[in-house]
Design a protein around this nucleic acid. Structure first.
Lengths: 190, 190, 190, 190
DNA sequence: TATGAATGAGATTTCATTCAT
DNA sequence: CATGAATGAAATCTCATTCAT
């Protein structure tokens, strides 16, 4: 069966777009959003600078696209891991370690760019729901989601501190911090 | 007796420098490090662009100077407040709310600028010591600082989430989150 | 009997060309020559950018083609209308109102593009002849065409001023201006 | 008496701005608005491209500034000339001949740029008032300005047609057209 | 013939930095 | 010490045009 008319071309376009997103994700991960530019991204993907603008309107737009991929990756990793708390924590931690720079830039952008903020909030809510599915005794109770949110915030911050080396620099070992998180989880279960 | 020529000039120079730092802090607070530039800072301080470079080598240098002032302010506020946990938390929270943008930019910069990272780590250690003075039963025990560090990280992250509105957006009220922090503090005391 | 292969292709090619010209005319009318580009024209016609260059060498070439169509339209409208002066004036006016943007761009292009200028001059001469056929007492007398030319220029300018709103903005009503033109016509008849 | 503090510097800035406007006016006159760019203007004035943006936000802004100068020049020329109709007509004609390209671009821009349109309408009204001062028997009568407006439109269009050579190309001599305008003026006087 | 994709060339715009005073 | 002005370098973005299919 021959491909539908045009589907081959569209596939090529999609592939280019994907290469650009991948290149952007690498740039953001390696040198950070604020240290790269659309030219570098296009060239890294193997294209001329102008090609960038056939697929994205500006740098922020590709950041959002890379963010989506980033989140999907994290969820895929979490889905593939076991359900016991320590494994989950270590999965999150590994992801944060790899994408430390991406995450800090994300938060900086969320502070000034409404689009980023909106998307981030939406993902946070989905994250809480997912957590509730993985661990029913941590699920939100009624309208008050503070328990799972508190846990996620804490886990996030601890992971970042371990990932960026500041935990170690302030004499807090990875193991001890993880133990604290696990203890916190036990205390939060209903 | 008139002041020596040299010292007078130094005093004037110091005043200019201070005005520049203040202006920079305001810029960073209002529109963020990445959305301002050295010209804007100089003009906001009431000087010409070139004056900036008489006092600072580049934008990062003045950021560090503003960071020092920022930390001193927070400590002054904490010193002036009562010692009970809730008051302390609310003091930290108020400070974070005001300087949300500054803080996210700080973290983004720390991820790529070694100077910022170094200074940040140094401050974290001082912060832990201060906490130990305020609350001896949360002080580090021996070489393991993980308990106070864990608490500080959590407090920091919760404050940011309240300050940037993401807590509310994920259905976690300020009061409920603060209650979680207080409960955590109680659990961590030895 | 089926058409020859060659002629069939030519017919298809002609149809494509026509669609491109139509789309170009719409673009020129709606957003203007200087605010559109060959890609937009091709896409508006339902083709890919490259197709444009199979039929026209550049943007100016299609402008000329659209200009021809534009003139033919105006003449068709005039031929279909009555012969009394007011009806003719109103027909011209209606055409100018619709194609205001096209006309101003035409004049701007004529000032720098010899091809446009040449074509425009040729059309002006034909226009004078037509006017002479419609109204013999306004026809050129010998080598001096100044009377019909003067009339056409005036009519043109008044129509533009009404069409672009500048007449109204300077407190000159459409009716009063048209009355002036009619009076002028009466004065010019021999 | 020493110059006021800063006045020398401001004078320099004004001089630069003026050089830019002059260079822009020359560009617009020689090759037209749509064939030049901010780089060419800056370089023609003797500056680097970036300098342009210290004085003007974009190309349209300097066009408006050049427009103001252009109008002031025309009025200066008219004020300096005699009051008899033929002299005035020839003064206007000379100005149009010199700035033909500028004028057609002006009209094209007015069709798409509200700022230009607004300014142009404002000037038209001032022009009518001036005409009323020069020739009281052509002044507006009450709210109806159509008589002077009709005259100005006609004069303008005839001047353009002579200036751009289209009058000649359609066998209408300059002298005969001017005679028509003069006759029109006589007919319009009250 | 038509095209989807890509791009070289260049216009627009920003900004850290310098220079002459 | 302070500065007004200017700018080199680079990032952002556009568009007429081409190429492989």
């Amino acid at each position: 069966m021959p491909p539908l008319k045009g589907s081959k071309q569209t596939a090529k376009s999609q592939a280019t777009r994907q290469k650009l997103v991948d290149a952007a994700a690498e740039e953001f991960r390696d040198i950070g959003y604020f240290n790269t530019d659309t030219n570098k991204i296009a060239v890294r993907a193997g294209y001329a600078p102008a090609t960038f603008y056939k697929h994205f309107g500006n740098k922020l737009e590709i950041f959002l696209a890379a963010y989506e991929v980033w989140v999907a990756d994290e969820w895929r990793a979490l889905d593939a891991s076991d359900d016991d708390p320590e494994t989950l924590i270590r999965t999150v931690l590994a992801h944060h370690k790899k994408h430390l720079l991406f995450r800090t830039d994300l938060r900086a952008l969320a502070a000034t760019e409404p689009d980023v903020k909106r998307y981030q909030n939406k993902l946070r809510r989905e994250q809480v729901k997912r957590l509730g599915e993985l661990a029913p005794d941590l699920a939100p109770e009624g309208d008050d989601w503070s328990t799972p949110v508190f846990l996620l915030l804490t886990l996030e911050r601890v992971s970042d501190a371990i990932a960026d080396g500041s935990a170690k620099a302030s004499h807090a070992s990875e193991a001890a911090l993880i133990a604290h998180v696990i203890k916190l989880i036990d205390g939060l279960r209903h």
